[in-house]
Nucleic acid binder design. Structure first.
Length: 678
RNA sequence: GCUGGCAUAGCUCAGCGGUAGAGCGCCACCUUGGUAAGGUGGAGGUCCUGGGUUCAAGCCCCAGUGCCAGCUCCA
């Protein structure tokens, strides 16, 4: 007899060899019908998995469990590969087909004569549907690795060899083969009882992918799909994808006049248009207030600096690939040209440090360090906190660029804190507090925090172990004090010190690193920085790099999506739209707009001959927070009729009162709604 | 950088190897209106760039550039 314990705590005795499916049947008919797979002692197994001995903890996974969806999607990947073989012949090579967030994919190598395109996805879907309707049962066979290879060779598959060899090397005595109908695949499983359990499947797009993620190896076609247990959920998911597309900052940004990226200017170089500049300026003002409060000092530094500076910092040539090539000193170029020096030779000499040149700065820190080093420093003035909205340039590979989130020139809300060893902990806390204020004010609560620590088994880190221990503890403590969920990730530290990253997810599900706080022992040493201690001896300061927004470009890109372009009043490029009912009221409207502008508000008037409905629609689509509707009625009463973008008609009030309320809302940065009903 | 797809009016997109299209936007005129689209007319094109095939190329071929998806990378 086998002993099993069910999730409700009940204990059952069943004959040895009873399958999970049979167990489900014994519990209830409906459960058996809904059953997808079983979970035995925490491991997912097929319904035909036999239970023996025990005691085992057994749970029946149904289509209502997340694991059920996972298994179904995995089975979908198999059906996809099967359909492709039906349509494009046995020359179709299938490699790996895992489940991912919100779906699955399969990496395929098509025979050379097949030019597979996205247009054919519906055809493939139809074939998958046919396979689903046949309701083919999935079966499993456990075989020795060599036997598995033979089986798959019979299916014409060669990629699987490599996976099987690896499993064998890991000591696996047997591997599992799954089959449904005429399809055979190496797979860990488990799978659905049969293909008929797939209810709603949709192939989404294709993309290139490398075999084993290695650019040197075969290029495969990755086919993405998703599936759900009912049509409604699939439709809802597809609708959400559409919705997400509408929030995409690459669409919204240009439409709302925030920024443009112009091929004539260059790839990955952002042109901030007037409305985008307003948003950026407001954010910078906001953060500057907090910088002053926290005792930062603002500095400005140039866009280029001598190559030698970046050799000292270690940025050149170590990160050469991700920098724009150096600018070479004019006189030297002339002289070298006269000598007949070629490009290869020039690069060579530059590397060796024989050629003077300038680098478009990839980071601000070396220049801030030189500011710190420009004076003799006493422990009494520490910490020194130097802040700059500093623009840096990085040579991102062309395929990496996109929108505002991955660009070649960007402005960091950067700062470098030079402090004593004892001050590190407090300074980190101050940095995190700032990030927390920023994100809270903007209502961005969907972020995660990563504390990157050193890998204890690696020797690549600089600084002594004591320092590291203290700094890592300071980072962890600060994250704890901050009161946010954070993960500790050993091996994720920079080589020069531990770090804390804030990662935000955008509407398409991509994650972006925004704010970052990093402790650095390396640069103070490379630049031989020192301050005089109370003991009248020189001491090495510790540096902290921090950027709460990360970069203005990326931050505003993500922020645009976060608000779907509808910025809160304090950030809105246009805060109030003044709309005249008819041209008879244009004069009153203009006068009102002037008063609003005089009060410091950003105002746009619409005095066109459009009807009021159309004007309201336009202003609403432009995401302007407040509308002032002005007709003869308002003029006679000496009032303004207020409409809020999302809340609709707010009734009339005196202009002075409206201004007063807006100013209140601005003062609190929208933390308290200003124009309430009435 | 690699693979695939795409590139036509300011925007979103149709388009057949044979005279370049629609909707929105823009401009003008009519209308002077009351809380998400009033009507009419008009302007606007290097069909991404450079080559090639063809009597004829926006369409077919080659190369380049850019964008999108993904891979790889991301101090």
């Amino acid at each position: 007899m086998a002993q099993i314990k069910l999730p409700d705590g009940s204990i059952k005795e069943i004959p040895d060899g009873t399958t999970v499916g049979q167990l489900a049947e014994g519990i209830g008919k409906r459960l058996a019908q809904a059953a997808i797979v079983g979970k035995v002692n925490g491991k997912l197994v097929d319904l035909f998995y036999p239970l023996t001995g025990g005691p085992h903890e057994v749970q029946i996974i149904t289509d209502r469990d997340p694991e059920g969806l996972f298994v179904m999607r995995h089975s979908c990947a198999h059906v996809l590969a099967q359909a492709l073989r039906h349509l494009y012949g046995t020359g179709v090579q299938y490699t790996i087909g895992p489940v991912i967030d919100n779906g699955f994919y399969y990496d395929i190598e098509f025979p050379k004569e097949v030019g597979f395109s996205a247009d054919e996805l519906p055809k493939v879907e139809k074939e998958m549907q046919r396979i689903v309707e046949q309701d083919l049962p999935f079966s499993r066979e456990d075989v020795a690795p060599d036997r598995a290879k033979d089986l798959l060779h019979k299916e014409n598959q060669r990629f699987k060899d490599e996976i099987i060899d690896e499993l064998a090397k890991q000591g696996e005595q047997s591997v599992s083969i799954y089959r449904q109908g005429d399809f055979t695949d190496l797979c860990r499983g488990p799978h659905l009882p049969s293909t008929g359990r797939i209810k709603a499947v949709k192939l989404l797009n294709l993309a290139g992918a490398y075999w084993r993620g290695d650019a040197a190896r075969e290029q495969l076609t990755r086919i993405y799909g998703t599936s759900f247990f009912d049509r409604k959920q699939l439709d809802e998911h597809l609708r959400m994808l559409e919705e997400a597309k509408k929030r995409d900052h690459r669409v919204l940004g240009p439409r709302l006049g925030l920024f443009t990226i112009d091929d004539a200017v260059g790839q990955g170089l952002v042109l901030w248009k007037p409305k985008g500049a307003v948003v950026r300026q407001e954010l910078q003002n906001f953060i500057s207030e907090h910088l002053r409060r926290q005792g930062y000092q603002q500095v400005f530094t140039p866009h280029i600096g001598r190559l030698g500076l970046y050799k000292t910092s270690g940025h050149y040539p170590y990160y050469r690939e991700s920098q724009f090539p150096p600018l070479v000193d004019r006189e030297l170029v002339d002289q070298l040209a006269a000598e007949g020096c070629g490009c290869a030779e020039l690069a060579n000499r530059m590397e060796k440090g024989e050629v003077e040149g300038y680098l478009l700065k990839p980071m601000n820190c070396p220049m801030h360090i030189r500011i710190f080093a420009s004076e003799q420093r006493s422990y009494r003035e520490m910490p020194v906190r130097l802040a700059e909205f500093g623009t840096v340039y990085r040579w991102e590979k062309s395929g990496e660029l996109g929108g505002m989130t991955r660009v070649r020139g960007f402005t960091q809300d950067d700062a470098h804190l030079f402090c004593t060893e004892e001050q590190v902990s407090g300074e980190i806390q101050g940095c995190l507090e700032l990030v927390k204020i920023v994100l809270a004010t903007l209502g961005m609560n969907q972020y995660r925090v990563r504390v990157g620590l050193r890998d204890p088994d690696s020797a690549k880190y600089v600084g002594d172990a004591d320092q590291w221990d203290r700094a890592e503890k300071a980072c962890k403590d600060a994250a704890q004090t901050l009161g946010v969920n954070f993960t500790v990730e050993p091996g994720e530290a920079a080589f020069y010190g531990p770090k804390i990253d804030f990662v935000v997810r955008d509407v398409i599900g991509r994650e972006w690193q925004l704010g970052t706080v990093q402790v650095d022992y390396q640069l103070p040493r490379r630049f031989d920085l020192a301050y005089t201690g109370a003991d009248n001896k020189p001491h090495r300061p510790v540096m902290i790099h921090r950027a709460p927004f990360g970069s203005m470009e990326r931050f505003i890109g993500v922020l645009t999506e976060h608000f779907a372009g509808a910025f809160p009043l304090w950030l809105a490029p246009v805060q109030v739209a003044v709309l005249s009912i008819s041209e008879k009221s244009n004069a009153y409207a203009e006068q009102t707009a002037d008063s609003l502008k005089a009060a410091g508000l950003r105002v746009e008037s619409n005095l066109s001959p459009d009807k009021i409905g159309a004007k309201i629609r336009t202003a609403t689509l432009d995401k302007i927070p407040y509308m002032v509707v002005l007709g003869e009625k308002e003029q006679q009463a000496g009032q303004v009729a207020i409409r809020h973008r999302t809340e609709g008609d707010k009734g009339s009030m005196a202009l002075a009162e409206f201004i007063e309320r807006l100013q209140q809302e601005l003062a609190t940065r929208g933390q308290a709604p200003a124009v309430a009903n009435g």
